[in-house]
Nucleic acid binder design. Sequence first.
DNA 1: GTCTATACACAGATAGAC
DNA 2: GTCTATCTGTGTATAGAC
Lengths: 227, 227
Amino acid sequence: MDYHSFKKKYASFGKDIFQEIFRNNQDVIRIKKEKTALGNLEKIFNAVFSISCKKGFHAMSMRDLSEKTNISLGALYGYFPGKKQLLSIIQSQGDAMIRKVLARSSTAHEHPRNQLASVIKAHVFMSEMYRPWFYFIFMEAGRINPAQFKAVESMEKYTGKILVDILKQGEHQGVFKPGNHELTAGMIKAMQQEWYLKRWKYRRLKISVDEFADHLIAVVEAFCLAG
Amino acid sequence: MDYHSFKKKYASFGKDIFQEIFRNNQDVIRIKKEKTALGNLEKIFNAVFSISCKKGFHAMSMRDLSEKTNISLGALYGYFPGKKQLLSIIQSQGDAMIRKVLARSSTAHEHPRNQLASVIKAHVFMSEMYRPWFYFIFMEAGRINPAQFKAVESMEKYTGKILVDILKQGEHQGVFKPGNHELTAGMIKAMQQEWYLKRWKYRRLKISVDEFADHLIAVVEAFCLAG
DNA sequence: GTCTATACACAGATAGAC
DNA sequence: GTCTATCTGTGTATAGAC
């Protein structure tokens, strides 16, 4: 599967993000009309990503956010109870989204080789579709309070385990070489992260997501495949 | 070469860091007695790394720094002219240090295979010795002002070029397979970064620097070596 | 629901005694 | 060289008119 068809398949995910946020946080969001809320939530989140990509979330002031969104300072507080809570909304929403897609993609194939390639691609394509979320969570999450670091750790374990399980299963079937699968999983995850952490570099080199993902899989298979 | 012998060879580098900082910034450091300055500079830098690792540089207040170092708020300003300048001192000092070591290690061997392995190891070992510097520069640099982002870009290009040159040279000699060397270099750098960005994970898994570096080189060679 | 005006806390930085 | 006390700007958050 290439990025184009992946995007089509998961297009629906994106549309509902702000709806989910709105509904999951009814208790803290003061705005009651869903229609106006959704539009403004989108503006707000995009602005947060854009500003904190440049200077970091902590350095972003509420006044910055107000300017960028054209929503007044006072009105902003109708959409979230405070700056800290905004951070944790982004974190937990992103978390849920990633888990949902990854869980689906890891059961799509039978053969370990295809399974591995499929999971790797899903993650890279996912990070392309929602790059601001991925980048933000990596750079900002876990640095505010210990509870959020726990979430980062847990996610790291979760995505790691998916890869390790496939590698073990593949070794058992004689498809993959034996080895330190934890380490290999770490290497794979590092390469996946490269895509959303340094995308400016690959844009400049004119390397597409598909090229990147294929190269990544080629590296992994060269190392893992038996025979 | 393993980490132990690398550390011995480059031990002298560490001792002089604060001396270099002190001498390179005579114009802005008000403290004149070198001996007292060196001790306090070390305390200050370690505190900066420790605090901003947890909450980020921007979230670290000068009062936080004062508490952690047991140096009063006013006295701190004798060691650097302001918070922003402190950031740029760390950035440029780290930059110079990395370039110095990398330049030396890339000319240590003749055969491309050894050269590649040597450069990769040097970088990983380097990041182990000065992990706080590496982590700090990755997380904080380039997010304050555009000039510092330029420095990040330039460093990325520099380390990338070293790898690409070796890969090209190796391909020319028939040692390495042909391929998109820019992409391969990106993958290598991603895996190198993994070590200092997620060290807590490898500490928990009880994986040593040497194991990590060897695994990384094994992955790279499986993909790159011809035949 | 959205705005402006403002309260209040805390940041970086300096002055001046010791 | 180091301290305490303080100045001044900026940040988050709220109150209350529209």
